[in-house]
Computed example of a mutant assay.
Amino acid sequence: MDDTQLCFPQLNSSCIKPRRPHTQAVLLHILLSSISLLTTALNLLVIVSISHFKKLHSPTNLLLLSLAVSDFFVGILMSFQIILADGCWFLGDAVCMLYCALDYVVTSASVGTMVLISVDRYVAICDPLHYPTKVTMRRATVCTSLCWACSFLYNGVLLKDNLKQPGRYNSCSGECVVVISDMMGVADLILTFIGPVTVIIVLYGRVFVVAVSQARVIRSHTFTLQGPQTVYAKRSELKAVRTLDQSSVFDVTSVPLELWLFYFNSCLNPIIYAFCYPWFLKSVKLIVTLKIFEPESCEASVL
């Protein structure tokens, strides 16, 4: 048909390019481009902050660094999603497979990191006396490395047929799809969504119960010894509770029903850091003003 738009007009096997109003297409590109740029920039600030300043080298921050790395790659991968927004893929089957594989790996690594963060917060609040001995930099490094290694290995097995022959499941030229078997799809749903969410809900539920019971004990002791007075929680404890709540939300949205929610969540993470962690704002100020290039800047007190 004369009015039909094709991705590759010179090919008989070309996919049909979906029609979209010009205004809608422009707004979609602006929105995705803005989120992509903001996601990449903000998570890069988190990566530089935790990597550069020695005061921030802690097990918890190492997990946040892992999450920021995955979110950073999400921002980069959004540039490919912008291409797909037009309904056609012009970069070839090999690049398509690379994009899809990285998308799967980053998503799995993000989910795994959120589970590790929930375990870290569980030990910190439910077993604080043994936290320094149970959660060490070495163990956090090993767990984070294993998380990423398992993500690469697991998704390599999941996408092995697609990796052997990129584009084998494309129905027309200009399409970018990957296909996994029904059995592997069910296994992936359990391993990357149902399982992690269940673990996090159980751990956070236990943390909530412990926090409430401790608060009641403290309140009763304070009332008995000193009479009625207002009890103020430490700022670090408040941050821990907020972080726990946010982590559960992050984990659920790491495997979203809508793709843009996943991308927007990766952009939102560092913004929430700014409200929960004072060190982030201090670090950003030093980075933006280029003071990190000064001698001994890594020793700066940002806590």
Rank of each mutant, 00 (worst) to 15 (best):
M1D: 12
L6M: 11
F8V: 02
P9N: 07
N12E: 09
N12C: 07
Q24E: 14
H29M: 13
L32S: 09
N43P: 10
H52R: 11
F53P: 00
F53A: 08
K54H: 12
K54D: 09
L64N: 01
V74W: 04
M78V: 06
I83Q: 09
G87C: 04
V95T: 13
L102C: 12
Y104V: 10
T107K: 13
S110L: 10
T113N: 06
A140P: 01
V142T: 11
C143G: 00
T144R: 07
C147V: 11
L153N: 09
Q165G: 06
P166T: 07
G167Q: 05
S181M: 11
M183R: 12
M183P: 00
A187G: 01
I190F: 15
G195T: 06
T198Y: 13
L203K: 13
V207S: 05
V207E: 05
V210K: 12
A211T: 08
V212I: 10
T224W: 11
Q229I: 07
Q229Y: 11
Q229E: 12
S236R: 14
Q246Y: 05
S247G: 04
S247M: 01
F250S: 05
T253K: 02
V255P: 00
L257K: 08
L259T: 00
Y263H: 10
W279Q: 09
W279L: 06
S283P: 01
T289Q: 13
K291S: 06
P295L: 10
L303H: 14
